[in-house]
Amino acid sequence: MLKFKLYYDKDAEEVWLREMSLKGWGLKKFFLGFYTFEPCEPGEYNYQIDLLDNWSGNKSDYVAFMEDLGVEVIEQWWRWVYLRKKAAAGPFEMYTDAESKIILYRKIINFFKIFLVIEAICFFMELTATIRTGNFVFGIFTVLLGAISFAILTVVWKCKWKIEQLRNEESRVS
């Protein structure tokens, strides 16, 4: 089964993949918003999404490390990786303390920041083109780019909010 979805929030994406697994569909492939599912036992897998430090990096080291822990790397898309673990093998949470969760959300913010800058530049270029020419095609692109920029901005805000929550949690316990 093939599904198309655009996720900017990896936490929400993980929840969705879990829901699909409960319905008997396990993620097999991912490319540019296209998710390929194959039938699985309902609830067979739990999913997590991770962001690697760099593009190529030491990927085989990462994959071997995860395999040793019963975690399967299903797909790598850019720096993003999709991981799954059999639900029968116990709970699956990649990051279990506030410190490492904060590191991950910081990484995500830095990842999206680059795109935010690019999208924002394109948005203003299209905007000036729209105003100058009055052409509605430019107008459509302006709205589209504006929407994407806003979506990315929302992710950055969300990550910042999550870091703030984790910090509060941290200061309560230590």
Partner: peptide, 8 residues
Amino acid sequence: VLGPGTLY
């Protein structure tokens, strides 16, 4: 409990 990502 150490998560795989935390440990790595």
